[in-house]
């Protein structure tokens, strides 16, 4: 087994210690940090597949997310040292909508989207519509992601989309909503472009959008 395979496997086995150790070794041996990030992306995809197959569950995604986050925190400084930048596939502004504070799902999307090559601006939880609007003006993202777990959040999603429309920014971004209680109806009601109940499918959808855009 190559070190790359071992590295990816350790993430898939949620073996945090081993994954980090391997990343450290590789960095210290002067391996290209971009390659490690690329493998992180592969790992993220495989994790998504495991989730779809019913082998992984939310708890696993949280743990995998934490491991990937730590590894990317290890790799990024090295990347800067070398003056390299990773080619970004798109920019995502994301937040849990006003009135809701659940962020487990949102945080998983953040990690998986970063691994997939997105630049992610995370606005946190209980984000009011105006903050989304400001962030769109400031960061000019390709995609806006809104998350909520409680039913009330769907109303907030609608308000946020309305605020984005009002600011004349609706045609500048694609909007995806996610969370345990969103569905086709919530998408129609809120005026978003897509919906998802799980992070992996959501990230796939966003990558598809970016491919279309090119």
């Amino acid at each position: 087994m190559s070190i790359s395979e071992a590295f990816i496997n350790s993430i898939l086995e949620l073996d945090e210690r081993r994954a980090i150790e391997l990343a450290r070794v590789r960095i210290s041996e002067g391996e290209d940090p971009l390659k490690i990030l690329e493998e992180l992306k592969t790992a993220a995809e495989k994790i998504g597949e495991k989730y779809e197959r019913g082998e992984f569950f939310i708890a696993d995604l949280v743990m995998a997310g934490e491991i990937m986050k730590e590894i990317s925190e290890l790799v990024r400084p090295r990347l800067r040292e070398l003056g390299k930048t990773r080619e970004l596939i798109g920019r995502l502004v994301i937040g849990t909508v006003e009135g809701d504070i659940h962020d487990i799902g949102k945080n998983i999307v953040v990690t998986m989207a970063e691994a997939a090559g997105f630049e992610v601006i995370d606005l946190g939880v209980d984000v009011p519509p105006w903050k989304f609007v400001e962030a769109i003006k400031q960061y000019k993202p390709d995609i806006v992601g809104m998350s909520c777990l409680i039913t009330i959040g769907i109303e907030s999603m609608k308000k946020t989309v309305d605020a984005i429309k009002e600011a004349g920014l609706r045609d500048k971004v694609r909007i995806i909503i996610g969370g345990g209680r969103v569905d086709e109806y919530a998408k129609e009601y809120s005026g978003a472009d897509a919906w998802t109940n799980d992070a992996a499918t959501g990230v796939k959808k966003m990558m598809e959008w970016m491919r279309e855009k090119r």
């Binding site: 504070i101 659940h102 487990i104």
Partner: peptide, 14 residues
């Protein structure tokens, strides 16, 4: 939900 350490502690307890 406003505590900076909660999500870290949460994943450590998983």
């Amino acid at each position: 939900s406003a505590d900076p350490y909660f999500s870290e502690e949460f994943s450590s307890a998983l």
